[in-house]
Computed example of a mutant assay.
Amino acid sequence: MTTPRRHLARTVLTAANGTTGAGLLLALITRTRVRRGRDGVLIAEGWRLPVPPASCFTIGSVIITRRSAEWLLAEERAALLAHESRHAGQYAVLGPLFFPAYWVACGWSYATTGSWGVRNWFERHAGLLDGGYPEELPLRPWLRRIWSGGRNAQRLRP
């Protein structure tokens, strides 16, 4: 559980490092309506672009959603809101470096499992299940072969 002091620190840091400003600028450009959320986050509702395909994503302390703020703030989506709020905390720590670090983590996860989130460090630490990701997926076959050191190939030899 996070404290009001931690929410304030996150809000101040994401404002100071410019990531909340970037989220608000994106909201302005795309004509999403910004509303106040809980625990120091803002919610930009009505995202209409096809990417990313997720129902929500976060930039700084701005959670951008295809749905309404009420939808995201509903009690049955408390875990999703918490997941996105944890991303805001990650932005507070990394600032603009979050963008490239996150996409490298997405690339690693996709290369190893075919999912953008399962092996993505940022998604794992924001809570995979809370974000709607499976907790685990098998490694891709090429990576399993590397990890096993070719042991399976040796077993198949006569």
Rank of each mutant, 00 (worst) to 15 (best):
R48T: 15
R33E: 13
R77T: 02
W47V: 08
V62A: 13
R66Y: 12
W47Q: 09
T30W: 00
A74L: 02
V62H: 12
T30S: 09
G46Q: 08
A22M: 11
L49Q: 06
S61M: 14
S68Q: 03
A44F: 06
T19M: 14
L72W: 03
F57D: 06
P50V: 06
I64Q: 04
R48I: 12
I64R: 00
L72P: 09
S61G: 14
E76Y: 00
A54H: 13
R38A: 05
L24T: 01
R33L: 05
T19R: 01
G60Q: 10
A44T: 08
C56V: 14
A44I: 03
E70S: 14
T19Y: 05
E70C: 05
V62S: 12
G18Y: 08
I63A: 12
S68V: 02
L25V: 15
A78M: 00
P50H: 07
R77A: 00
G21F: 01
G18D: 09
R31Y: 00
L73T: 06
E45D: 08
R66L: 12
T30R: 01
R48Q: 15
S61D: 15
G37A: 03
W47H: 15
R31C: 09
W47N: 10
R38Y: 02
G40A: 06
A74Q: 09
A54Y: 11
T32Q: 11
E45I: 07
S68P: 07
R33N: 08
R38W: 05
S61H: 15
S55R: 15
W71K: 04
L28H: 14
E75V: 02
T20M: 04
A79I: 03
G21V: 01
S55A: 14
A74F: 01
T20I: 04
V41R: 05
R35Q: 14
W71L: 07
E76C: 01
A27W: 01
S68K: 08
T58G: 15
P50S: 08
G46S: 08
V51F: 11
A78N: 06
R38K: 10
I64P: 06
R38M: 03
G46V: 09
A44P: 10
L25G: 15
A54Q: 15
V51A: 05
G46E: 03
S68H: 04
A44M: 01
